[in-house]
Design a binder for these strands. Structure first.
Length: 277
DNA sequence: TTGTGTTTTATTGCCTCC
DNA sequence: GGAGGCAATAAAACACAA
């Protein structure tokens, strides 16, 4: 245990309010002594108490008695000092915790904003490609049919990014439902051939599910010209074949405190799972 | 000097544990 | 029921700008 002499180099400091009625003092002083004002502990006393607090922030009765004796204070004063010190320590801890949470929040928000930008970018890319599909269909098919397909796809893409995400079976059903009904239908309806196919930049491609549940896109050879193929590989799939992970396989546990999938809705998950880029 | 904000010491009331 | 802890608060001491 810390010795007060180590800190102070000996005794001799102000007396506290509680020692005002020291029986050793003469009778006159005791009888006519005005209660002293609240007096602060000396720097040395505080330093000693701080050291003791660092060792153990709880105060057992024996330690309290010894500290009081060493510091020439009332045991109650020592107890009060520890009480107040614990309160200050707790406040500091809360401040630290708040700062830590704030930092986590800032990081997550930055990530979220990045993803938001990415989503917007992809949306415009999809719109651009859809427009090309429309033009192609207009050239060789029914305008109204093409237009309704385009609208269906746009509606699917217009789903807000932030929505309440419910847990459990309901959300699972929604994910499946969205995948089947909203996204895939809107998208695959554009395609003339059977699912799972994608029609990108005027080129059919087939989405193959790999053994590891990832997806890879492979251009359908029968309706792709060499020119289109070059265009496709250069502009759209520079690293073809692009291995596209299933959304649910993406691990977000690396982001502390994140259980919200960055605010993506089930529809967004479905989009991720069913779309390529 | 004084007004004001902050820090420190101490009290009060409530709660839990033995 | 007493001891001890904690939160809330009072009040004195202190710091400091105007």
């Amino acid at each position: 245990m810390v010795s007060f002499e180590d800190v102070q180099g000996g005794k001799g400091y102000n007396r506290s309010f509680f020692t005002a009625f020291d029986p050793d003092e003469n009778v006159d002083q005791v009888y006519f002594h005005q209660p002293e004002k609240k007096r602060r502990l000396s720097a040395n006393q505080v330093q000693f108490l701080e050291k003791s607090f660092d060792e153990e922030n709880k105060l057992e009765p024996e330690r309290k008695t010894k500290l009081a004796k060493d510091l020439d204070l009332e045991p109650r004063q020592v107890a009060i000092w520890f009480q107040n010190r614990r309160a200050r320590w707790k406040t500091k801890q809360l401040e630290k915790e708040y700062e830590s949470l704030q930092a986590s929040f800032d990081t997550l928000k930055a990530n979220y904003d990045d993803l938001l930008k990415e989503k917007e970018k992809l949306k415009s890319e999809v719109a651009n490609l859809t427009e090309k599909v429309l033009v192609r269909e207009q050239q060789g098919g029914d305008y109204k049919e093409g237009e309704s397909k385009r609208k269906g796809l746009e509606e699917a893409l217009e789903k807000p990014l932030i929505e309440s995400v419910s847990e459990g079976e309901g959300s699972k059903v929604c994910v499946e439902g969205c995948k089947q009904e909203e996204i895939s239908s809107a998208k695959s309806d554009i395609l003339d051939s059977e699912s799972p196919h994608n029609y990108v930049d005027g080129v059919h491609s087939t989405m193959l599910e790999l053994s590891d549940s990832s997806y890879v896109f492979e251009a359908d050879q029968q309706d792709i010209s060499q020119d289109e193929e070059d265009k496709l590989s250069k502009n759209l799939f520079p690293h073809q074949p692009y291995i596209f992970p299933k959304f649910e396989d993406v691990n977000y546990s690396d982001h502390p405190g994140s259980s919200c999938n960055f605010g993506f809705t089930d529809e967004d998950h479905a989009l991720w799972s069913s779309w390529s880029y």
